[in-house]
Structures are given as structure tokens and as C-alpha cells.
Design a protein around this nucleic acid. Structure first.
Lengths: 343, 343
DNA sequence: TTGTAAGCGTTATCAG
DNA sequence: CTGATAACGCTTACAA
């Protein structure tokens, strides 16, 4: 294999100087059409590919965006990431993905790595909103940065979903059906979505004048780990929930398994609402009533905010919040619907 | 915001030359412990972060790997990508993700972009295995490259799944149950998995001495688009399939919808096998019998092959094939099980 | 419009 | 063990 062509080679072949090649290839201003044409052809013939490391070093934007999430294999993130990537790709940006797997050390390392790469912008969903090291890391990031669905006390663009409103609506729906004992299964309160969901459901209980003891939480550190046993334990407990609100990822999977393995049915014995309208929620049987928000739009919006900043937008940080909508399916009914049946 | 610290600043602060800083920071050989310590402290105090563009330019490996898939929001890819990324991250590599969305122009552009970035290695799942432009692009790629589940006529490392064997097992299972009319719903024959699936099912029909007309295909260009209407049409046709084998992504979702919207039931009216043991297959009701292969392992293996090459492995290209296993659930029964019922 | 030359931040080579 | 020096490949003043 031969050395890749350099700007120098193109220049030689076109019979011009490297600077003319550079000008001809970027923008094409201050170059005569004749030279422009010759350069283009020479570059084509040589299969010239500018070295982006060198371009980046010389001071240009690197046209690269870093994205940090806990795990793309989470379908919620996957959809968001895919949309953000698509939008940025349209503008010629490269998209670097880092999965933290919930590990703070990895988050720190990744943000640092992103910075060393001199990325033009970052999209981040931290797993820890308060740790000073992480905060410092964010603050030290000079390039545009969009916070995904997190409340971090730094002045940055952010895009979030209205988890509070969504949770309120979900709780309200269940309360209206007569439920008084509801279990919320969600990633924990160290991040915004969890906190907001709890707050939303609590205020629904309050507004309905219900005893707050009816609301219990199963706060999960990892997406999958202990949901099954937690839910099973709750259902076997002294005051089992008659309804469960659960994140529509593997957590929903674990919850449905747990319910089934207790010999219970949805919705007869337990009503279920999924947070996030995933395939699983949509096509489980019975269809699971779900809180939907437009993840593609969230991802696109994050990209859009970055692109605006790249374009020189210096307005104060924006916060975009996407609404959540309750999609009614068949997984909710009044509590005790099944009690008449033999079991 | 102040200019980020450079090696020069660290050198000044530690009272040594830039070269010593470089040596102290990388490996730390040929440096006295005293200098080493001072440099480390100075770097720490200044928050020095080496510019990877410069490092890359200077000729080092860029410690970056590019990955091209059609869409991470496809749960099959998401899992694979997540595993590959995790493994590479462990070794300090940055993972650049490109979604082609099935568009060949994007694929070309991305591979080119990857090369310009002087990536150390590539993991690619092309959507087109034969187009000369793409082939040339692959051949021109000097760095290690792993082909994901594709038959491209170039000598490269590849990791694949045994779709043929899996499809054979699935067809066999259905044939043993008595099915003679089976529909296969899969992305088309322009890529390996589709072709292999068709071949596997065809040979199961042949081995069973069955008429090949019983086997029909619904070849889908895009993951989601026309599955619903295609399946619906097939079920309403003159010789409706009594069983459907379908990719466990949104295609499975579309298929289940189509079956339901025809007023049919699984497995009473139609048996279903999912290719890929996705959450949807696992938790749909009834549970969908599925072909499982270890996607995490596939992703990890792709990463592993690259890492071996980075480590200087010069063996001829390897081909790793992962087996598929049929997980029996409740979505398959003998054909016509429901005919006695009123419908 | 075009070419010359300097420099982006790092590391490898080579003296000392 | 340490420091000067020369690249790496590109862009951009500046001069012609």
C-alpha cells in the first residue's frame, strides 16, 4: 500500500502551489476557475483525502461532536442518538459516541477524551448531576455543550422532557381508575428524570387528597439488574401495589416478567403504565398504556442547538422542554378487577 | 475562557523541556523519577490535556475506531454497537458512529470521512455488498477493517451470524409442526443475512421434500416501511401463510400488528418466529419463539479482531461465525389449530 | 490571483 | 537522562 496522497502531491500534479490547492478545495474563493478545475481533477485522480488531524490542528473547527449517554442499547437513547447523529451528519459533522454504562469514572474519562480531541461540541446525559468533579469538567468545557434531560447547575443549553407532567398524568389516570397503591419503577433520584417522575406522582397524590403512603418507589441504579426481584417482592408484600408505572426499557420487560411469574395478570390484577412508548409497550399483549414523548425530536433539537452555536449564536442558554402524552391502551383497569375470578 | 494549557506550558512550569514532558506523560521511560513527578504535578495543576489532533498528526495512532451501521436505533445494532464500543473504550479508543440509514451515498461519504480522520480501524455493516464504488472504498482502506455480517468480495476480517443455519432450524421447526406455507419477512437479498435466511429455509423445504411454492418472501428495503401492508396482503391472499418468520425488529412489530388487524391470533391462526431474541419477542404475548444469537459477543468480537490487528497481528483474514439457537416459546402451533373455533 | 513561509501542538531523533 | 530540532499535513497572512 502506498502513502496516501497529500496536498503537496495534488499541487505538483496540478502544477500549482499547495495554497492554491487548499483554496480550490475549500470554498473555492480567490482562485481562478482554471486552477480550480485543474486542482479538482488532480485531487480526484490521486484520490486525495485531506488529513483532518492536520486540518484540525491548524486551527479550523474539527467538525466533530461528542455524545455521552449511559448506553445506546437502551432503546430510548438509541432513538435519540440516531436522530442527533442524522442531523449532524447532514451538516458534515462526525459523531463520536461514548457509553458510560452508568460509571462516573467513564464519564469523566470520556468528557476529557472529547476535549482532548478538540471536539466542536458535546451532547451529554450525565448519570450524576452533582459530583463536583463532573461539574468542573462541564464548566471547563469551552465548546458548546447541550445537557440532555439533566439538571446540572451550570449555565448551558439543555433539552429535556416534561417528566413531571407526564408522571402526573399517569398517576392521575390511575387514581381516577381507583388505584390507591402505586409503585413507580425508575432509575433513581440522582438524575432529573427520576426526581421529576417522583415529584409528579407525589403531587398527583396530593392534589387528589390521597395518603402519600400509597405511593412507593423502586429506584434502580442499573437499567436491568434488580427490577425483577424488586417488583416480585413488592407484589408479594403486605401492601402490594395495584398499579405499576415503569420505565419502558428493560425495566418494563423485567416488570412484566415479575408480574407473570407471580401468576398475576395485566390489567386484571395489576395495571401497568410504561414511561416511554417503546416497541415493547406497543406490542406487548395487552398493549401497555404509555407516556410518549418524541425522542427523535429531542435528539434533533439537541443537534440543532449545537449547530446554532456553531453558527455563532451567542444568546443566553436555552432550555427546550418536550411534552409527554399519555397513550391509552389496555393495560389499566380499576383495581381488583380480577378478584372475582378464581386464583 | 483561557487558552488550554499546552505541553510548552507544562514544561515551563516543571522547569524542563517539552520533550521531557512528553516522555514523562507517555510511558515514563527514560525519565528520572524526579522529573517525572514534577511534570505530573505541573500537568495536573494546569489541567493539561494533550491535543489529540497534534498527536495524531505527528504520526501516532489516533486511537479512534469508526463504525458504520444502517441505524443504531435498530435494537439489533444497538446491542452490538454498545458492546463493541465498550470493549474499545476499555482500551482507550474513541468510537465514532455513523448511521447510513440505508443510503449508499451516506455510506460512501462516511467511509471517506473515516479515512480522512485517519482512523485506526473500521467496523462496517454495508447495505450494499456489490457496488463497485463501495468495494473500491473498502479496498482503499489501508487500516484494519471488520465486515459485519456481510459477504463482500474483499479479503478482510469478518464476523457474522449463521443465518442460514438459524433459518433452517426455524423452517424445520415449523415444517415439523405441519406447516407447508411459510412467509419469510426480512431485509432483502442485497445483503448476506437476507440471502442466507432464504437459502436456509429453501434447503429445509428441499430436505423435507416439500414444494418450494409453499415458501414465500417479503423482502423489505427499509426496516419499517411496508411490512404491515405486505403481511396483511399476504394473509388476505389466495394462499395465506400459516406461519411467518420475521426479523425481530420493527418488522416483527409490523407483522404482529398486521396479524391482529386481520382478526387473526398467534399461534392459533398464524405461527410466528422472530429472527433475533429482542425484548419485543420475549415479552409479547404469547411469547414469540425466537432465533437467538449473542449480539454482545458479535460486537465484542469485532472489537477484538481490530485490537488484535492493532497489536500487530498479521495473520490472514479471519472469519468468525456465531451460531443461532432456536428458543421455543408459545407462538408456534400446528396449522389450523383455530379452525374449529368460530371465526 | 498566486506563491512563499510560518506555525498549529506533539513526539522522534539525535546530540550532549 | 535531558534538551534542541525537525518533522507530521494543512491553512492563512503576507508578499508578489
Amino acid at each position: 500500500m502506498t502513502r496516501p496522497a497529500q496536498i503537496h502531491d495534488v499541487a505538483a500534479r496540478a502544477g500549482v502551489s499547495p495554497s492554491s490547492v487548499s483554496r480550490a478545495l475549500n470554498g473555492g474563493r480567490h482562485v481562478s476557475p482554471a486552477v480550480q478545475a485543474r486542482v479538482l481533477r488532480a485531487a480526484e485522480e490521486l484520490g486525495y483525502e485531506p488529513n483532518l488531524n492536520a486540518q484540525g490542528l491548524r486551527g479550523q473547527a474539527s467538525r466533530t461532536v461528542g455524545c455521552l449517554v449511559s448506553d445506546v442499547s437502551n432503546p430510548l437513547y438509541a432513538e435519540l442518538v440516531s436522530a442527533a447523529e442524522a442531523r449532524l451528519q447532514d451538516e458534515g459533522y462526525l459523531f463520536v459516541l461514548g457509553n458510560s454504562h452508568g460509571d462516573m469514572a467513564r464519564e469523566l474519562a470520556l468528557i476529557r477524551l472529547f476535549r482532548r480531541r478538540r471536539m466542536d461540541g458535546l451532547i451529554v446525559a450525565l448519570n450524576n448531576e452533582t459530583h463536583p468533579d463532573l461539574l468542573r469538567e462541564i464548566e471547563q468545557t469551552a465548546v458548546p455543550l447541550v445537557l440532555l434531560d439533566r439538571d446540572v447547575s451550570v449555565e448551558r443549553d439543555r433539552v429535556s422532557a416534561d417528566h413531571r407532567g407526564g408522571a402526573y398524568a399517569a398517576a392521575r389516570h390511575l387514581i381516577d381508575l381507583g388505584h390507591r397503591d402505586i409503585l413507580l419503577v425508575t432509575p433513581g433520584h440522582q438524575v432529573r428524570p427520576g426526581r421529576e417522575r417522583m415529584a409528579g406522582m407525589e403531587s398527583a397524590f396530593r392534589d387528589a387528597g390521597l395518603a402519600p403512603e400509597g405511593l412507593t418507589f423502586s429506584l434502580q441504579a442499573s437499567s436491568i439488574a434488580f427490577v425483577f426481584s424488586d417488583v416480585k417482592q413488592a407484589l408479594a408484600g403486605p401492601r402490594p401495589p395495584s398499579a405499576i408505572v415503569v420505565l419502558g426499557t428493560q425495566m418494563l420487560a423485567g416488570t412484566l416478567s415479575a408480574i407473570a411469574s407471580c401468576g398475576l395478570e395485566v390489567p386484571g390484577d395489576v395495571s401497568v403504565i410504561s414511561i416511554g412508548d417503546t416497541d415493547l409497550a406497543r406490542y406487548a399483549a395487552p398493549g401497555i398504556t404509555a407516556l410518549r414523548w418524541d425522542l427523535k425530536n429531542v435528539g434533533r433539537q439537541a443537534a440543532e442547538l449545537l449547530l446554532a452555536r456553531f453558527g455563532g449564536d451567542v444568546a443566553p442558554p436555552r432550555a427546550v422542554v418536550f411534552p409527554m402524552e399519555l397513550i391509552i391502551r389496555k393495560s389499566c383497569s380499576p383495581p381488583g378487577s380480577n378478584r372475582r375470578g378464581a386464583r
